[in-house]
C-alpha cells in the first residue's frame, strides 16, 4: 500500500530529467510515478500529523491517486501510437541492422561543404574517416586490465560506432574494444556501399536536379555528369572494398597476437606489484629466524620485573 511506511519518506526520489530518446520514456514515467507517490505519502503524513482528515481531502487524494496511476498507461499508449509498437524494457526502438540506404548519421551532409559532387563528398568522408581510425589503431593503445583485459577503443572508433546501427545505443558500446575495428569498419563499408547504391538508384533524377540548378546547357551536361557519376560509383564500389580488404588483411595478421600481448602487458603490470610486495616481504623476512618460532630461546630476555618469564 502506498505510503504505508512513513520512514520511506526519508528517501526522496531524484528530480526526473527530461526525455532525450524514446527509450527513456518509460524511465521518465517511472520516475514521475515515484515522485508523485512520494508527494502523496508526504501529504498523507502531514495530514495524519495535523489530524485534518476531512472527507473532501480524502476525495481529492483518491482522485489524484487514480490520475497518477493512469500515467504509465497513457505513456505506453503514446509510445505505441508514435513508434508503432509498445515500449518494452530492453527493447530497441530501431533494428540493429539498418536498412540499406543512405545514412545522414554516418555521412552528415554538412561535412565537406566545399565538395559539390555528392559521390566525391561521400568518398572523401568515407576514406578520411577510415584513414583516421586506422591511424589511431596503429598508435599505442590503452588497456584496462580490470575489465577483462579490454582494449579501450580509440575516440575515432567510438565516434564512428556511435553513428552505426549496431552500436548506436550506448549500452551496445559498453563492450566495444579496439580489436573490434574490423567489424565496425566492415559495417561502415556496408553503409557506404548502400549510400553509393542509393545514389546509383536515384542517379537520373538527382543529376537532373543538380544540372538544372547549375547549368543551362541541358541534355549534354546531364549525360556527361550522369556518366561521370556512374563511373565514379562503380570505381568506388570496387576501390573501397578492395582497399579495406587489404587494410584488414594487414591489421588482422598483425592483431592476431594482440590479445596475447594485451594479457602479457597486464601480467607485466601485476608483476610489478608482486615485485614490490615481495621486496617488502624480503625485508621483513630478515627477521624471520627470530619471529618464526618466537617461543624459543631467541625470544627477548625478560626484564627484572617480569619474574620467571
Amino acid at each position: 500500500m502506498i505510503g504505508s511506511d512513513p520512514t520511506s519518506l526519508q528517501k526522496e526520489p531524484a528530480i526526473c530529467l527530461p526525455v532525450r530518446s524514446p527509450a527513456e520514456v518509460g524511465t521518465k514515467a517511472g520516475c514521475l510515478f515515484a515522485r508523485f507517490s512520494f508527494l502523496v505519502r508526504k501529504a498523507r503524513l502531514l495530514v495524519r500529523n495535523k489530524k485534518q482528515k476531512t472527507n473532501k481531502r480524502k476525495t481529492f487524494l483518491s482522485a489524484r491517486s487514480v490520475c497518477i496511476a493512469t500515467i504509465p498507461v497513457a505513456v505506453a499508449f503514446v509510445t505505441t501510437i508514435a513508434y508503432g509498437q509498445p515500449f518494452l524494457p530492453g527493447h530497441k526502438a530501431y533494428p540493429v541492422l539498418g536498412a540499406c540506404e543512405s545514412s545522414e548519421d554516418a555521412f552528415p551532409p554538412g561535412r565537406y561543404l566545399m565538395i559539390k559532387d555528392p559521390i566525391n563528398r561521400l568518398s572523401q568522408d568515407y576514406h578520411s574517416t577510415v584513414s583516421s581510425i586506422v591511424e589511431a589503431h596503429l598508435k599505442p593503445r590503452t588497456i584496462r586490465c580490470t575489465e577483462d583485459v579490454r582494449e579501450v577503443p580509440s575516440g575515432e572508433l567510438s565516434a564512428l560506432a556511435a553513428k552505426l546501427p549496431p552500436w548506436k545505443d550506448s549500452e551496445d558500446r559498453t563492450g566495444l574494444r579496439e580489436t573490434d575495428i574490423g567489424v565496425v569498419l566492415l559495417e561502415y563499408l556496408r553503409v557506404y556501399e548502400c549510400a553509393l547504391n542509393e545514389q546509383r538508384f536515384f542517379l537520373p533524377s538527382r543529376v537532373a536536379q543538380d544540372v538544372q540548378k547549375d547549368s543551362v546547357v541541358g541534355i549534354f551536361d546531364h549525360l556527361t555528369t550522369f556518366g561521370d557519376r556512374l563511373k565514379r560509383i562503380k570505381q568506388e564500389l570496387f576501390l573501397a572494398r578492395m582497399t579495406l580488404d587489404r587494410t584488414l588483411t594487414y591489421l588482422g595478421g598483425m592483431d592476431r597476437l594482440r590479445p596475447v600481448d594485451a594479457s602479457l602487458e597486464c601480467l607485466q603490470r601485476s608483476s610489478l606489484d608482486i615485485r614490490n610486495i615481495l621486496g617488502l616481504t624480503a625485508d621483513v623476512s630478515a627477521c624471520l629466524p627470530r619471529a618464526w618460532d618466537a617461543r624459543t630461546s631467541l625470544r627477548d630476555p625478560p626484564n627484572s620485573s617480569s619474574g620467571s618469564q
Binding site: 594487414y250 595478421g253 598483425m254 592476431r256 600481448d261 602487458e265
Partner: peptide, 28 residues
Amino acid sequence: QLIAASYELPIDGYPGRVTTLPSRYKSL
C-alpha cells in the same frame, strides 16, 4: 609482402612496433 609482414610484425622484436611480444616476454 603485406600478408607475411602482418604475421611477422608482432614477433620480430624491432623497436617501435605496436605489438612487441619478444620484448614483452623478456620484460616479464
